[in-house]
Amino acid sequence: MPEGDRKIRVLVAKPGLDGHDRGAKVIASAFRDAGFEVIYTGLHQTPEMIVSAAVQEDVDVVAMSVLSGAHMTLFPRVKELLTEAGADDILITGGGIISEDDMEALHGQGIGRLFGPGTPTGEAIAYIRDWAAERSGRANQASRSWEAP
């Protein structure tokens, strides 16, 4: 399979005690219909659970849905744990009830784009596809490195 045709694997996760799972389910189905392989782990995931699943499933993207207001701690924590696990090449994206200011602040900490209420799912899909295409472009220049801890 040529690099460009590789299936995009995405973990859709609901971290914390947040019980709002409609958005996550909408996104998970939209991703599947876009041809992604989506691993959905259900509600109430700790950052540790999310990272352990992301590593084992070798996903390209961790996509989190946060409507609880805890995004400023959850996103950076997942980022930190992924780096510790040697999987910092995974894209972290997500959505939910997150202010523009917070989105920007998180972006500054290495988190990808975040999507608020009312965003058409196609936007997130296009964003992930573009990211994957760009990455495989990079991979063709220098093969993906395995030299993580």
Binding site: K7, A28, S29, F31, R32, D33, A34, G35, F36, E37, V38, I39, Y40, T41, G42, H44, Q45, T46, E48, M49, S52, A53
Partner: peptide, 18 residues
């Protein structure tokens, strides 16, 4: 149809996650 998949078996295995 789409070539995509929704893989949900892990939902039942959350106790084992870490």
């Amino acid at each position: 149809y789409s070539g995509g998949a929704l893989l949900g078996d892990r939902i039942r295995m959350n106790d084992l996650a870490t």
